[in-house]
Amino acid sequence: MKLIELSNVGKVFSGTINVPVLFDINLTVEQGEFIAIKGPSGSGKSTLMNIIGLLDRPTSGTMKLEEKEITLDMSDKMLAHLRAAKIGFVFQSFNLLPRLSALENVLVPSTYGPTKKNTSSNKKRAEKFLESVGLTHRLNHKPNELSGGEKQRVAIARALINDPDLILADEPTGNLDSKSGQEVLSILTDLHRKGKTIIIITHDNTIASATNRVVLVKDGRIE
């Protein structure tokens, strides 16, 4: 099944002058794929990620998620529900909430997702995911008590809590030393093996080469 399908997608940031960022993007991602979107900074790959991640809307073209069209007039609320249910985000700068423990951070998306009422089963799953990324001993630690690699592993557990189809990782190893980066990459590879669709946005060739397909973005176009 086609998980993501972009046809002729364009994005123009309008303001005092209009800045076109993406032109005629055609991209199809099948269910279960492991791909890298690669490109230099300023190439438009972050904007592309925001569109795929339903944080932003394209200004032209069509986008389908699970073969259903994401229309321009879809409400913010609808997009928020889709993000909660279908997409797990992993960010370069981890973006954990500093006041919350590792376990509570993992639980944040569950309070907005389809299982928001089952708090006790959510908690069990959060513990299970933290265990799967090797952080059983860090459940109640705050982000500032964790190393960079540990933070990113908490973020991966958070991305998994609502059991999304797609993991969208934006430079997940960008702020990590090579050893921690390798660990994070092997966790993502492992998730791909278990059937998750994974898109990594990166400009790192070693990361890109670990994936099954590399999509190159340059000057707002796919090459």
Partner: peptide
């Protein structure tokens, strides 16, 4: 602001 951004990215609606 950052917290609000994170919460919205992981699925918080405006109402939430």
């Amino acid at each position: 602001t950052k917290e609000i951004g994170i919460r919205k990215a992981v699925g918080a609606t405006k109402t939430a």
